[in-house]
Amino acid sequence: MNAEEIRELIRLAQESGVAELEVQRGENRVRIRLAVAPAALDFVVPPLQAQAPPLNSQPTQAAAAAKQAEVEAEANVLYVKSPIVGTYYESPAPGSPAFVKVGDQVSPGQVLCIIESMKLMNEIESEVSGVVLRKLVENGRPVEYGEALFAIRAS
């Protein structure tokens, strides 16, 4: 089985939404296990760049990153990601307290931050009940479409 065939299998596994795929051809056997369980796809998942290690990284690092993603998926950690390109603000106005801080309990509909794009102020709300594990962006920084903003452990 060559690299192209394996890539094709990975694509198939991703498109079909199965968590695990095992294929045997002659003596070759390949098992593909997606790091994020399909059930979690209903929620926000970390953007590709946060999950995928750089191409030149060592396999051990890649494995560690995959392991980390797996552990977090299992531990019910959801990533809130930016729906637009814009500027990230952690508080409603300069100098006022942040909407949330690490360790805060949040509930569905609670505002977590604002992403501004061309004077469109986009209030980002939590979709779940949980605890803010990490704030991933510094106040006032630009964010990309789909960039992870918060890690939240759903309760």
């Binding site: 061309m118 004077k119 469109l120 102020m121 986009n122 209030e123 709300e125």
Partner: peptide, 21 residues
């Protein structure tokens, strides 16, 4: 005046703010 100030004689005569909620 990008993105959405409306200006007459160099001064602002209308302001626009959009919130998504």
């Amino acid at each position: 005046r990008w993105p959405n100030d409306v200006v007459a004689g160099g001064r602002k005569c209308a302001g626009i703010l959009v919130q998504l909620q």
